[in-house]
């Protein structure tokens, strides 16, 4: 019955190690720049405009809701800016300003503040907002038509549309290294795979995101895509393709790992990630939507409270 684990507990005074919400937000913002900056180089000033608009409007919405609800001003913790940044990373560079502002309204006000502010949101606010605007103005967020006026030195067709419409061999020309280095169209900050991976690894080492979630999410995608690929190699693209296209990488490192909508224990985190990855591939391959990451993340967010029931037994409690 006795645990052999020895814990050392000392008396006060304690020393604060300096971690805070604002430093966490700052670090995630910094990590996201690794993907956003190459995106801005690719899409030019329009992308910079969308990112700036998104961050600014998210902060303003938060400020407004602070005033309305007579709560302390909370924009200083940087969470609103972070939501704005992550939302912008998913947008195409041509998104009109009003769609950005509506999106950040849904992210900050409906997604976060309505539920009681930071730490109380059941869904990832940016994902929620993105799904709502995508459902409403599908043509604005169709990457093929949205980015039509750009000239690229690579095939400017959204890879997932190709695999959905024409099967696996339509995406064979996409070399995996090209996809990794952002030679594909997509959201401002969601195509430059190497940047997203480096950012994610940095955040994992600093402990701002949990490696269990990211790794199991990617593992879930790999396993599910491999399964589909083995079943029907003609129809379903391989796991490498699914790992590097659409919102997969941003989903694994920035969306699924959002704190208050993801579990805290080891086993639940693994289930959460694998479920998200598998759902993503299922929606992509047999669902009606082009990219499944957003819906998969929303669904695992919903499952999260159930997963948190799997936890160590409290000491001294019966049953």
């Amino acid at each position: 019955m006795h645990s052999t684990l020895k814990l050392t507990v000392s008396h006060a005074p304690f020393w604060h190690n300096g971690s805070s919400i604002s430093s966490k937000s700052r670090n995630i913002l910094l990590a996201s720049l690794l993907a956003v900056v190459p995106g801005c180089f690719q899409y030019g000033m329009a992308a910079v405009g969308v990112v700036a608009m998104s961050i600014a409007s998210a902060i303003l919405w938060e400020l407004l809701i602070n005033f309305i609800s007579r709560r302390p001003i909370s924009v200083g913790d940087g969470n609103a800016a972070l939501i704005g940044m992550i939302f912008a990373m998913m947008l195409p560079a041509t998104t009109p300003w009003w769609a950005v502002v509506t999106g950040t309204f849904f992210a900050v006000v409906i997604g976060k503040e309505i539920f009681g502010g930071i730490g109380a949101n059941p869904f990832n606010p940016a994902v929620l907002a993105m799904t709502i605007v995508m459902l409403s103005w599908a043509d604005l967020f169709d990457f093929n038509s949205a980015l039509l006026n750009y000239q690229f030195d690579f095939n400017a067709v959204f890879p997932l549309v190709l695999s959905k419409a024409f099967g696996a061999h339509a995406v064979e020309p996409f070399a995996l290294t090209d996809l990794l280095f952002g030679k594909q169209i997509g959201g401002i900050g969601s195509t430059y795979g190497i940047g997203l991976i480096l950012g994610g690894v940095y955040l994992m080492f600093r402990g701002y995101i949990r490696w269990e979630i990211s790794v199991s999410f990617l593992a879930g995608i790999f396993a599910a895509a491999l399964g589909f690929n083995i079943l029907n190699p003609e129809l379903y693209a391989g796991p490498g393709f699914h790992l590097l296209t659409g919102y997969t990488l941003i989903g694994a490192f920035f969306l699924a790992t959002e704190d208050s909508s993801s579990p805290v224990n080891f086993i639940p985190m693994l289930i959460y990630g694998v479920l998200g990855g598998a759902l993503t591939v299922m929606i992509r391959n047999i669902g009606t939507h082009i990219d499944g990451v957003l819906y998969a993340v929303l669904i695992i967010n919903l499952v999260n409270p159930l997963l948190d029931k799997i936890r160590p037994k409290a000491i001294g409690k019966g049953v």
């Binding site: 509506t102 409906i110 309505i114 709502i132 605007v133 459902l135 409403s136 103005w137 604005l140």
Partner: peptide, 18 residues
Amino acid sequence: FQPFSFMVQAPGAFICLG
């Protein structure tokens, strides 16, 4: 103005009512 079709869907009803 581009119609915000989310509002006439079911989740829009809840958010609008709220």
